[in-house]
Design a binder for these strands. Structure first.
Lengths: 119, 119
DNA sequence: TTGTAATATATAAGTTAGTTATATATATGA
DNA sequence: TCATATATATAACTAACTTATATATTACAA
């Protein structure tokens, strides 16, 4: 379980992933986000800092998130959390991602006799 | 069922989609590919010609596909099919896409008590 | 004690996969 | 005759990344 997912495929998914995490966890800092993404994806998704911080800055600029700075262990930590507007946007992006996954699922899983069910 | 999937999310998925179709259908021409993608995705994925043809030309240049030209109804049609090398590459790309979908599925579907089963 | 890895953020330069716009040409039906 | 469908092609642009670099503290091992 080590093969990373290629960055071409991941392109466009990073922002939704970040919004989803913020939606679920409420308050996170950048470094924490990269660690969680790596852990949750079992190492298959690695968010580089060169991608992460520009995305976070843009989200702040667009008033999707607000920041709080804290000094922890003498190091600066910037916490991000969704604004009300950002929370709505987040729901939208998550729905869009789910539609994307469902649609690609149809295209890539033509295996018959397999469906979703409650267990 | 009309909302198109955003091009940001789709970025990187178009090539795998094309390879998957060629793998399944054997021989297709460009216009046909766009129609099938639109139909299979219920209108949610629209492959523009500005994206399609450069991808097909690159696949040919990389010897992933070979072409056959035919005149149908006085119009030129360029058929594409996978080379043996392309067929291998295709399997690889399809596996990668499946891993991608599975991983994003984990991140975006934390709903419990729902699993895959045979019907 | 010295150096490496982990923690933490930031940004500039380059790549590339797409979009948008445009071009060409035939067939079909209103 | 005029719009729509069929069919391919490419040039110019955009944006989301990668790669590389920079800075600074903490923790741990040789």
């Amino acid at each position: 379980m080590k093969n990373k997912i290629s960055s071409e495929l991941l392109k466009g998914s990073l922002k939704p992933i970040i919004l989803k995490l913020l939606k679920e966890q409420g308050r996170m800092y950048g470094y924490e986000i990269t660690q969680q993404v790596e852990e949750l994806s079992k190492g298959k998704i690695v968010l580089t800092y060169g991608a992460l911080y520009p995305i976070l800055h843009k989200l702040e600029n667009d008033e999707i998130v607000i920041t709080e700075q804290e000094i922890v262990n003498n190091r600066t930590r910037v916490y991000y959390k969704l604004t009300p507007k950002g929370s709505e946007k987040s729901v939208e992006k998550i729905r869009e991602m789910e539609a994307f996954l469902q649609t690609l699922g149809i295209l890539f899983k033509p295996s018959p006799n397999v469906g979703l069910c409650n267990t």
